[in-house]
Design a protein around this nucleic acid. Structure first.
Lengths: 202, 202
DNA sequence: AAAATCCGACTGACGAGTCGGTCGGTTTGA
DNA sequence: TCAAACCGACCGACTCGTCAGTCGGATTTT
């Protein structure tokens, strides 16, 4: 017998799970709250008991997902000190996390953009956060003389975009079979791009 | 006195122009056909006389824009023979074209994603077309021994994504002031990334 | 019993697409 | 030459399905 909080929490989580399913398969606009209710074995009223609006429900998913992603990335980076190594492990953490949660990846890369203008600010902030994380490592690397000076604004955007696109292709087409398989090629590309001489370790 | 055809063409174009405005500022979902009619100084019926549906109107814009972009890129590439040089001029052509048509850039990079799942296939095909163009140059460059062998699948995706993201930032935040200003840094990044030794010409 | 949770029929706003009608220009034919 | 007949372009009030969100009541938990 689940206690009170427990039952309620279960229900809330079931709604979130179902919402992830439906949002990622139908897109935000075409998702019906009724469908989320049906799939989570509750009712429309039940959904609205736990979430004030469809939009808030979607944002809860995004928050849940970005917490997951950022915590993993930060944990990975904490274990390294060299800026470029931190970039590399962050890259791997991203590929591993998305690689294990395709629906989450889809939510981030496809649906969030398709969810209308209300979400653009939120997404822009999230992008900004990641780009800043990358830029910081690049700036550090330049400061430490590991790489030659370069436009780290453009470079961090480009890094971010490159990873983004590789993940997106995987989400949409299933290639490569395992997302992590793209790691070596991507790491090489990014590090070389930033001026690291060919044949370096890290 | 404008003939009937002429007047009709004018009207049709006015609708397209207004549609570009409204779609790019409100997003697909939040765009009202009534608003397009209002801004093009016509009526809802007038819009529907020229286009069978809101969706078809949007697709017409996309087609118009992709024709513009691809023709410029192809023209630029035709003037070069070296694969990496072709990549570089293609990059510049993209930056110049989008740089001069911010609304079009927004249409491609933001609104098309927000336009719902009906458009995903269309957009995926377009992305595919560009990625294939890039991959071809990279494969040629490898075949000609200009660069060391690499995973050109991942590399072309990464290139594409990198450019995409730089353009998107410009669309959303206005940085850099002139999109073309990102060209040198981006070119360097992409060419180095692909293994071209630092300090090469092209 | 009281409170928390859940149900689902219902409402109201909304907006894409329709359709009967208008209007200016063009063709016909007397 | 000049209507009468015609036609394509255009208009905008209206229809009609859709769906997020509500609410009064039922059910479950404490």
């Amino acid at each position: 017998m689940p206690g009170k909080q427990e039952r309620s929490e279960n229900r809330r989580q079931r709604v979130l799970d179902a919402a992830l399913d439906v949002f990622t398969s139908a897109g935000y606009g075409d998702t019906l709250v009724d469908e989320i209710a049906r799939r989570s074995d509750t009712s429309k009223g039940g959904v609205y008991f736990h979430f004030p609006s469809k939009q808030a429900l979607f944002l809860s998913l995004l928050d849940e997902a970005s917490d997951l992603l950022l915590s993993r990335v930060e944990r990975a980076m904490a274990a390294e000190t060299d800026p470029l190594a931190r970039g590399a492990v962050a890259l791997r953490a991203v590929l591993q996390t998305f690689g294990g949660h395709r629906a989450v990846a889809r939510l981030f890369l496809v649906e969030a953009l398709g969810a209308g203008h209300q979400f653009n600010a939120r997404m822009a902030a999230l992008h900004q956060r990641f780009a800043a994380l990358i830029k910081q490592q690049l700036d550090d690397a330049v400061a430490q003389g590991l790489i030659a000076p370069l436009d780290t604004d453009v470079a961090s955007m480009a890094w971010f975009g490159a990873v983004n696109q590789v993940v997106m292709r995987w989400v949409l087409t299933g290639q490569p079979e395992r997302l992590e398989d793209a790691y070596p090629a991507l790491r090489r590309l990014l590090l070389y791009g930033v001026g690291l001489p060919a044949g370096e370790k890290v």
